[in-house]
Design a protein around this nucleic acid. Structure first.
Length: 275
DNA sequence: TCCCAGGACAGCA
DNA sequence: TGCTGTCATGGG
């Protein structure tokens, strides 16, 4: 993809392969907000502002390298879309979300975020995460706070997570912090996919769906297919009625192979937006 | 008031 | 192994 590096700025000229609305609003990430026409993105303790210019998208940041990796700018999405467009069911979703890219997000923050996402809606997930940031994080810019360190979260009792609005997920969060560290999340990268997924599912608050989200959005494993209510809804409408989500997952992986995760994002964004 | 949200979990057969 | 009820909470 064509992009140039200026001082504190990445300029992306391939507008057909990068669209901030598609990337951020497709449900893979919660650490952003839109102010006017500007998207502010704040993973971990990083910060970037994205705006549209006549010939390019501008990503202003003090950490260029971080956001080149974060936005997966070195991958070729034109090729991915070409391959996936062969599937009839993906043609409209790809036209609709043409600028989607799958982010490379921090494992620890992604794990916490998607544990909170269980049986929850995106608006409230963002609210809970922002409460955590404001309580324990450090000020990054304006009213934006960094995601807290593992150590700070570890010092919290279960009541803290209830107070920020996590509801019954509070105990999951309290427990998972005692089951695995950010360092260990990095170390298990070397596991093969099945072993890695099993390890994640063994953790508190992480079931098949959350594990797949972490595998896709954190570990960047394209060969998984997170099945949530929206995908299940889509499957029952366009394929045939099937209630077992693990079966839906396996059928879709059989169909889309190593590009399953990408197919999933186009379908999720399309399905959620058309409802 | 009811229903739902990027589900996980325990209890049960 | 596979199914069912339950779990907070805010928004539509």
């Amino acid at each position: 993809m064509k992009y140039n590096i200026e001082e504190n700025e990445i300029r992306i000229y391939s507008k057909d392969e990068f669209n901030p609305e598609h990337i951020l609003e497709c449900g893979q990430v919660f650490c952003f907000k839109k102010e006017g026409e500007v998207y502010k993105v704040f993973p971990e303790s990083q910060y970037a502002e994205i705006s549209e210019k006549e010939k390019y998208y501008s990503i202003k940041t003090e950490n260029i390298d971080y956001f080149i990796n974060f936005f997966d700018l070195k991958s070729d999405y034109k090729q991915i879309k070409e391959n996936l467009s062969k599937h009839e069911i993906l043609k409209k979703p790809i036209e609709f979300g043409f600028g989607i890219r799958i982010l490379n997000q921090d494992l620890f923050e992604t794990m916490i975020s998607f544990i909170i996402s269980a049986n929850n809606n995106i608006k409230r997930i963002k609210l809970i995460l922002n409460n955590i940031r404001k309580s324990l994080g450090e000020r990054v810019c304006g009213d934006i706070y960094s995601f807290p360190s593992y150590q700070k979260l570890l010092e919290c009792d279960e009541q803290f997570f209830k107070d920020v609005g996590a509801g019954y997920r509070a105990s999951y969060l309290y427990k998972v912090l005692r089951q695995i560290t950010p360092k260990e999340l990095e170390e298990i990268k070397s596991y093969d996919l099945d072993k890695l997924r099993a390890k994640l599912i063994s953790l508190s608050g992480i079931g098949p769906k959350v594990a797949d989200c972490l595998l896709l959005f954190g570990y960047h494993k394209g060969e998984v297919f997170p099945v949530d209510t929206w995908i299940a809804q889509m499957y029952n409408k366009y394929y045939y009625p099937l209630s077992n989500r693990e079966q839906i997952r396996n059928n879709l992986i059989e169909e889309f192979g190593s590009l399953s995760g990408f197919a999933q994002q186009y379908l999720f964004y399309f399905q959620r937006s058309s409802n």
